[in-house]
């Protein structure tokens, strides 16, 4: 596809997405769409790091901070989410820097990095649970309903508004993905993920590049958490933070495909539709079944289709056209 053709396709698709809630108003389906968009944004945020081999299981922590800090500031200090969300993002970003800096500075990679970030999301969950006097602990937390100014409280009752907000945020995520894809940082980070020492020798500031992408990724993930909280108006530590959420991000990104911008979105569509189907299928017995299926699929995907559904499909399409290009793609491992 030519550059212009591609742009046109995006424009048409986007116009259709914007128009959708005005034509189609089924609230349940809109609700599912909003969830898909919010989680797609979160998964896209994760994949910003994941695609460069920076496998973080700490993103559950960033998301939890985004959700809880925003809600806590609103309930306890009456601070509008318009201020609360940036504050929560800064908090998540600061945490990302504090943990990321020593990790990157001292070349903590691979297993070590995964385990450190894993502990990070575990700890955030612990903190939310420990501060149960403020956060409601594992029972969950609800932002106070705004009585007067809904816009100030970022609380809307109609699905259409939320759909448009989620769409905008999701689109922003995709744009950031593409900006990074075209930046010099992408080459630096790809070099780092191939061989850190060689990259450093070639003049890449390894620590700075990694910190930059980690920061962007953490800020976006926190935003996803905050938006999720504002939309659902109810959060629990298990749904927005912790290891399970982190793994869910990894799972969706891998299912969809890590190396294409819409991969995480495809992952979100698949996982959320799966979860909803299971929920409807099993009714109240559904608790746990969706994750059970997730887990099995995650294992199967990693063993049999590590490039994800979208990635594999695109590969196949490309290989029919350009053989050499596929070869190049093959060389990029899922992560190292």
């Amino acid at each position: 596809m030519t550059g212009q053709g591609r742009l046109a396709a995006w424009a048409v698709g986007l116009a259709a997405l914007v128009a959708l809630p005005f034509v189609y108003r089924d609230p349940y389906h809109l609700h599912i769409l909003v969830l898909i968009l919010i989680w797609s944004f979160a998964y896209t945020s994760w994949s910003m790091m994941g695609r460069f081999g920076l496998v973080s299981l700490g993103h559950g922590g960033f998301m939890g901070i985004g959700a809880y800090v925003t809600a806590l500031l609103w309930n306890h200090l009456g601070l509008s989410p318009w201020i609360g969300i940036p504050v929560s993002m800064v908090a998540a970003g600061a945490l990302a820097l504090v943990v990321g800096y020593p990790c990157f500075r001292f070349r903590i990679t691979g297993h070590y990095f995964v385990l450190v970030t894993l502990a990070l999301s575990g700890i955030v969950l612990q903190v939310i649970t420990a501060t149960r006097d403020y956060t409601g602990g594992s029972l969950g937390y609800t932002p106070n309903r705004a009585t007067t100014n809904k816009l100030l409280a970022l609380q809307f009752d109609d699905k259409t508004t939320w759909y448009l907000i989620a769409l905008a945020v999701w689109l922003a995520g995709i744009v950031v993905w593409h900006l990074i894809d075209r930046s010099m940082s992408r080459y630096a980070l790809e070099a780092i993920s191939e061989d850190e020492d060689a990259a450093a020798a070639a003049g890449v500031d390894v620590t700075a590049e990694k910190l930059k992408i980690t920061l962007i990724s953490a800020l976006m993930t926190a935003l996803a958490g905050a938006i999720y909280c504002q939309y659902q108006m109810f959060i629990t530590p298990d749904t927005v933070s912790g290891i399970a959420v982190s793994l869910q991000m990894v799972f969706a990104a891998i299912v969809g495909g890590l190396f294409v911008s819409l991969g995480p979105t495809v992952g979100a569509i698949i996982t959320i539709l799966l979860a909803e189907t299971l929920r409807i299928g099993f009714g109240t017995k559904a608790v746990g079944w969706d994750n059970l299926v997730y887990g099995v699929l995650l294992v199967l995907f990693i063993i049999f289709l590590p490039k994800g559904i979208l990635g594999s499909v695109l590969d196949r399409l490309k290989s029919q056209r350009k053989v050499s290009r596929t070869h190049e793609q093959e060389a990029v491992k899922i992560a190292r």
């Binding site: 799972f251 294992v299 990693i302």
Partner: peptide, 21 residues
Amino acid sequence: PINQLLATGGVLFVLQSFATV
């Protein structure tokens, strides 16, 4: 190695949700 690690992450999901179910 990361794939192995993530696969055991999938097993974590499986075991947790198996216990829940």
